[in-house]
Design a protein around this nucleic acid. Structure first.
Lengths: 112, 112
DNA sequence: ACAGTCGGTAAGTCTCTGCTTACTGTAAGC
DNA sequence: GCTTACAGTAAGCAGAGACTTACCGACTGT
């Protein structure tokens, strides 16, 4: 654990892909099997499997084997990592230009 | 505006790149000029310019021309878009397996 | 036991994008 | 006015990754 921001990076990269985001958002309405997920998407079933593997590696989903079926559900871990990172960012962002934002500061000096 | 989740998608994709994230995080400590940003990174200055353009398109940064210098600062718009999307996701995630999480439901029936 | 279904893996292709080296334009200093 | 620094743009290359088809293993039902 470099800092925990590493898992946020992985999760961020995983959700950058539109198809992956679509699958993930689909899981919001509850756990679903792979085939079921594949049926609602334009890409092939193996592609879905690969995407789910990425999401799983990022801690965004969790799978449970039930017979030959494999049911995927949302894992809050990944989402939590992003949220933590985001909150950290927010702090810096506000600090960097909060309500005491003075444009004067920009063209006043060339710093050092 | 499909729903506003579109801008979240762009911002998410922008922050998926490590170099871009590094630049963005660097801006947390205050506005900086392009050359200054380029100096702290392994890639070339033009690469930095390109990355900043992507971040700008995603509403994550804002630039101000000061003479020949171009100062970049964090724009809360993009970060806000991600946060909104994330919050929306959280709702679904909790709903999908909140504290009433019953594994029974998984292997009970094959749905329809 | 055999056929069918479900789903992950392998191997290959093709696009997308991050990076580089030019080059151009613009503002500032002497 | 000429040179020098800053920064965006163009063009081209090379690696990453998203997708496909083909294959294989595992469990289910009759």
């Amino acid at each position: 654990m470099t800092k925990g921001s590493d898992s946020a990076a992985t999760a961020l990269a995983a959700l950058a892909d539109p198809t992956r985001r679509q699958l993930f958002e689909r899981l919001r309405s509850g756990p679903r099997a792979v085939g079921e997920l594949a049926r609602g998407v334009t890409v092939s079933r193996p592609a879905v499997s690969q995407h789910l593997a990425v999401l799983k590696a990022a801690g965004l989903v969790r799978d449970t084997a039930t017979g030959t079926r494999r049911v995927y559900e949302i894992d809050p871990k990944g989402l939590g990592a992003i949220r933590a990172w985001l909150d950290d960012m927010w702090g810096g962002a506000l600090e960097s230009f909060g309500d005491e934002l003075e444009k004067e500061e920009l063209n006043k000096k060339d710093s050092e």
